[in-house]
């Protein structure tokens, strides 16, 4: 049977990808952050699973006002980095894992989750930046991926609890996958940030740290926050944090936090990363 070894949460700020792509990680603005990420990269090197399920959101790249499903799962054999307005990032294509993706779709459907299915979506910074954070700049990514896209930009959004329950359904699906493979799950986006309007630049370390604490101590507390709670307290785009609930929901009751980094600022964002090992 497949084994879900761990979850990671990380922000997916595009500037982080650009810093790596353009060789700026040694500059004063970035070097503290990238030094802080070294242990995370060490952990990933020692614990590379066969597949990572990566929960992300599309930023008006592949999905838009014309069509944006609440939850979409990628079943392609491979996925390309997207052109989101400045040309695609020069990072390797991502190999999919259609067998696991379809198994999750079938298992989740039986659990009342109707996932939209997509075979050809290009993946934007929301997906590729976390891969670069974890694995640096390899010629090929060391794992296959299953993309899970959550609508966190076009209201109405799924509730924080719904995201957690989706995670539980994914966790159950992985546990019943017949092949002996190892699997990781990542929640991306956040932490507190607001990118638009007169209040742009608002961040909230207290709310962010509590959210991170809750992931191991009281994960259900993070499911009781409304979208307005997130938007008011953690910035309009801070609501992306509900995607971390999918990651947490997939893990078991007992997790051990083995890494945490919190850093302000990355562009207009409070950067957060965490690794939770499944016990």
């Amino acid at each position: 049977m497949a084994k879900l070894i761990a979850g990671m949460g990380t922000s997916h700020v595009p500037g982080l990808g650009a810093a790596m792509d353009n060789g700026k990680t040694e500059e004063d603005y970035w070097k503290g952050l990238f030094a802080g990420l070294e242990p995370l990269r060490g952990w990933h090197q020692a614990n590379t699973p066969d597949v990572n399920i990566i929960v992300y959101n599309d930023h008006a790249t592949e999905f838009s006002l014309d069509s944006y499903s609440t939850f979409t799962i990628g079943v392609g054999e491979s996925f390309k980095p997207a052109d989101e307005g400045w040309g695609p990032r020069r990072v390797p294509e991502m190999l999919g894992h259609p067998e696991l993706a379809w198994h999750i779709i079938e298992s989740a459907m039986a659990d009342e989750f109707d996932l939209a299915v997509n075979a050809s979506m290009d993946l934007d910074h929301g997906f590729t930046v976390p891969l670069s954070i974890a694995y640096g700049q390899p010629k090929e990514w060391p794992t296959a991926v299953v993309p899970v896209c959550v609508n966190v930009i076009q209201h109405p959004l799924p509730t924080a609890l719904r995201c957690y329950k989706l995670g539980q359904a994914i966790g159950k699906a992985v546990a019943s996958y017949p092949d002996e493979i190892t699997v990781g799950i990542w929640g991306t986006g956040g932490l507190s940030h607001q990118l638009g309007g007169e209040r742009v630049g608002v961040v909230n370390p207290e709310v962010d740290q509590r959210f991170l604490d809750n992931l191991s101590k009281d994960p259900l507390a993070n499911t009781r926050l409304s979208h307005t709670d997130f938007m008011r307290e953690a910035g309009c785009e801070g609501v992306e944090m509900i995607m971390w609930n999918v990651m947490r929901g997939a893990l078991g009751d007992n997790v051990e936090e083995v890494f945490r980094l919190y850093h302000i600022p990355v562009s207009a964002t409070a950067y957060g990363a965490i690794i939770l090992e499944n016990r």
Binding site: Q154, H155, G197, E198, M231, R232
Partner: peptide, 9 residues
């Protein structure tokens, strides 16, 4: 919420 423009209907 002041100075905030979410995308809704």
């Amino acid at each position: 919420i002041p100075g905030t423009y979410p995308l809704d209907s």
